[in-house]
């Protein structure tokens, strides 16, 4: 059996995973490249590992909800990501779902 610390770590990770996508999408209303997005999320208190973020960006891009472009900005080309129309719609729906769920869970937690 896993230790209590491991168990908590695992469950926390799962809890984070769901909101992570939402957090990333929320920042992609503006155009970002990978590193600037890590910085920005970190600044706002969401610590995200690059190894999680970069593949996530790639997956979202593959799902067709982001628009990606290579742009030559000194000193090197960078790949920029931004929500497209579908992405913005999805973000709106997800945000709605998030608030609803948050409210429900909140009530449940405060029951006793």
């Amino acid at each position: 059996m896993a230790s209590k610390i491991d168990l908590i770590k695992n469950l926390e990770q799962e809890l984070r995973k769901g909101t992570l996508v939402l957090a990333v999408l929320s920042q992609l209303k503006e155009k970002h490249y990978g590193y600037s997005l890590v910085e920005r999320l970190n600044d706002k208190g969401l610590i995200i590992d690059q190894n999680t973020l970069y593949p996530l960006l790639r997956r979202l891009d593959k799902h067709g909800i982001l628009e990606s472009t290579w742009e030559m900005v000194e000193p090197r080309p960078r790949k920029y990501y931004q929500l497209n129309k579908l992405g913005r719609d999805i973000l709106r729906d997800l945000t709605q779902t998030y608030y609803e769920q948050h409210e429900t869970v909140d009530t449940l937690l405060k029951e006793d």
């Binding site: 490249y33 590193y35 600037s36 970069y54 960078r78 790949k79």
Partner: peptide
């Protein structure tokens, strides 16, 4: 699929971090 793309992106990201 997308092998070169991923590598180019990683290179650019690592260099960004290195610059900083």
């Amino acid at each position: 699929k997308d092998r070169e793309e991923t590598v180019s992106e990683l290179r650019s990201l690592i260099l960004d971090q290195l610059d900083e």
